[in-house]
């Protein structure tokens, strides 16, 4: 007897649905459990006061500020460098073997484990350039880590602008830079911004690269300069969940909640921006 193809189809589709649900469920579980156990910890005081009593009480203000500094530092370094590099690679570089090798190398760099970037940052910024464990060293390390992300997403956005846009502009006698500035960049902007936001959320959430380059276990004041160490949210969560005895559950989950909210809202912004971009694209 041959199996009924329609029954096979029903079974197959049900299995596909189950797989999808199995993947999606943990997301809700994680978000739910973090909100359920952490929400009661969130208060204005928790967000704006320093940790007290061996980090068992008080807030997480220095960690939030530290993470903001790191994100800012990362952007200052990686944003212009990444976007301009992408412009260079798509608009200026000649299409030869070297360029293709470089593009390949950059794509591959996006897949290198974050801990390897931490290793690199420790070796080169902290030790070799003698920056010590500092916001500067941490920002540079994170910057190098997100650079490939910014370059590849910006490059994709620039590549997606049709060639004809450039040709028309150039044929009207507009210079190369003016063409890029007025005919290419505006159309690629949402795509570039999406990449930048994703890079920010990556920089804000990573622990391994800042482990050896900036993170302080406890530093209750705001850093004075870029040569100071700083606390950072992901590392702070790691510390209070594995290193400090008898931390209240709600403080651990509260910290996880704040970290997750920051990174998730950044990602949500990126998703919205991209869907706007897709809607507007008319060519």
């Amino acid at each position: 007897m041959k199996p009924n193809p329609y029954r096979t189809e029903r079974i197959a589709f049900t299995l596909l649905l189950i797989s999808t649900v199995v993947i999606i469920l943990p997301v809700f579980f994680i978000v739910f459990i973090i909100i359920q156990k952490g929400f009661s910890a969130i208060s204005w005081e928790f967000l704006t006061s320093i940790p007290k009593m061996g980090m068992r009480e008080g807030g997480i203000f220095p960690a939030i500020v530290g993470t903001l500094y790191l994100v800012l530092g990362t952007l200052i370094f990686a944003l212009p460098l990444g976007v301009f590099s992408a412009i260079y690679l798509t608009e200026y570089a000649q299409d030869n073997l070297l360029t293709r090798l470089i593009k390949l190398a950059i794509i591959n760099l996006a897949g290198v484990p974050s801990v390897v970037y931490g290793l690199f940052g420790l070796g080169i910024f902290v030790i070799f350039l003698k920056l010590g464990a500092s916001i500067l060293a941490g920002s540079l390390t994170l910057g190098v880590m997100v650079l490939p992300i910014i370059i590849t997403t910006s490059k994709e956005a620039l590549d997606s602008v049709p060639k004809s846009f450039r040709e028309v502009s150039l044929s009207l006698g507009v210079s190369k830079w003016q063409t890029i500035r007025y005919s290419v960049l505006p159309h690629a902007l949402p795509g570039i911004l999406t990449g930048i936001i994703l890079a920010i959320s990556r920089a804000a959430g990573e622990t391994a690269p800042i482990l050896f380059t900036v993170a302080a276990f406890y530093l209750p004041k705001l850093p004075h300069s870029v040569f100071d160490q700083a606390m950072a949210l992901p590392y702070h969560l790691y510390v209070i969940s594995t290193q400090v005895p008898n931390v209240e559950v709600k403080i651990r989950y509260g910290t996880a909640l704040v970290l997750m909210m920051i990174v998730l809202s950044l990602n949500l912004a990126a998703i919205i921006l991209r869907s706007q971009f897709r809607k507007r694209k008319k060519w």
Binding site: I23, I24, P26, V27, I30, I33, I34, S201, A204, G205, E206, T207, P234, Y235, L237, Y238, S241, T242, R252, A256, L259, M260, V263, L264, L266, N267, I271
Partner: peptide
């Protein structure tokens, strides 16, 4: 969007939930 949200959860948060 739901699946992309997974990518947005920092790994230390996933580790923390896994551990507990």
């Amino acid at each position: 969007s739901g699946i992309e949200m997974i990518a947005a959860i920092p790994s230390v948060v996933i580790g923390f939930i896994g551990m507990t």
